[in-house]
């Protein structure tokens, strides 16, 4: 079947199925199982209302369970088996991972990414948010800096591959070097620093995200606190660092952690730019090296990523629960 027709059919079936399920389940509950008639009418209404939330929740819970909860366990179990999946080898996959030079390098590089990208993106985002706050054309500037958010990681990689290109007639970096009389070089092959050139791409994308959220947070600061500081004779830098930043610290942390999690998941940039060569491997791209080749190792890497993300996840849940109270 043609995928387009298949797509239309899927939309109709999916949407129709959802509406049908909710409507029918609701009707059956009210009319057939617990009818609001007869001598049990009152009790039946209460019973129906106790069941209804689960009717509403069921499709979502089923999908979440199958597509996100089950894989956590499924992946862990799979990672304890060998490549073919027929022999239990305990933590063998993990042992061979940690013995692998590339894995350790990927782990170290990922550590650098986590250190640099959230910090730089948040810092630049905060800077732009503050600078554009009272600017007449601030919204235009923000919109343009926000734009890379809409571009795919693959598209962004291509855009930056062009910037980094070796030929001084193509890559702007080498054009600048050329104008200083330096020989062209491939930034992606400079040992150690090439990691940072790749991070630039993600920082370029994520600064807009940080900016949008921090800009809203800055607007939410009570005007009186700033006015009081001005009257007390604080200079602009003191106002920014001692009055504004402490008040939006909570938001800064949220932005920081959100970008941190993203850093642990994005494989596209490394995959497109270097394919993990020249010592630029990170965990997500390292995992894709094993995908389709050795499921045992691939799931082991995925589980390592999960363990690294876990503290953030717990912290997020605690924050969310605190706010609900």
């Amino acid at each position: 079947m043609n995928p387009i027709i298949q797509g239309i059919v899927t939309i109709v079936v999916g949407v129709g199925g959802c509406v049908g399920y909710f409507y029918l389940a609701n009707t059956v509950l009210d009319r057939v199982i617990f009818p609001a008639r007869g001598k049990d009418a009152g009790r039946n209404i209460n019973r129906a209302n106790a069941v209804r939330p689960w009717l509403f929740l069921f499709p979502a819970m089923f999908a979440l369970g199958l597509y996100l909860v089950y894989p956590v366990f499924g992946s862990f179990v799979r990672s304890l088996y060998n490549r073919a999946g027929d022999e239990f080898i305990g933590l063998g996959n993990y042992a061979s991972l940690f013995a692998d030079e590339t894995f350790r390098s990927a782990f170290f590089n990922n550590f650098l990414w986590v250190l640099v990208v959230p910090a730089m993106a948040t810092f630049l985002g905060l800077l732009v948010a503050q600078l554009t706050d009272r600017l007449k054309w601030g919204n235009v500037a923000k919109s343009l800096i926000f734009m890379p958010m809409a571009i795919s990681f693959v598209g962004a990689s291509l855009i930056w591959k062009f910037v980094y290109a070796n030929d001084p007639d193509i890559g702007i970096i080498n054009a600048v070097r050329d104008s200083f009389g330096l020989n062209p070089l491939d930034p992606l092959q400079v040992p150690f620093w090439n990691n940072f050139f790749l991070m630039v791409i993600l920082i370029w994308i994520q600064t807009g995200f940080a900016m949008v959220i921090l800009s809203a947070a800055l607007r939410g600061i009570p005007e009186e606190t700033v006015e009081a500081a001005i009257i007390d004779g604080a200079n602009p830098f003191q106002i920014f660092f001692k009055i504004k930043v402490p008040q939006i610290m909570g938001t800064i942390v949220v932005v920081w952690t959100t970008i941190t999690i993203l850093v642990l998941k994005v494989f596209d940039i490394v995959y497109t730019m270097t394919g993990g060569n020249f010592d630029t491997e990170i965990l997500p791209s390292y995992m894709m090296d094993f995908m389709f080749r050795d499921d045992g190792r691939a799931t082991a890497v995925a589980f390592v990523i999960m363990i690294v993300v876990l503290p953030v996840m717990i912290w997020n849940i605690r924050q969310a629960r605190k706010e609900m109270r």
Binding site: L64, G74, S75, A302, I305
Partner: peptide, 12 residues
């Protein structure tokens, strides 16, 4: 679940 890495879901 918001932060569960997609990587985990691929193989299973």
């Amino acid at each position: 679940l918001l932060v569960v890495p997609l990587q985990l879901a691929l193989v299973p």
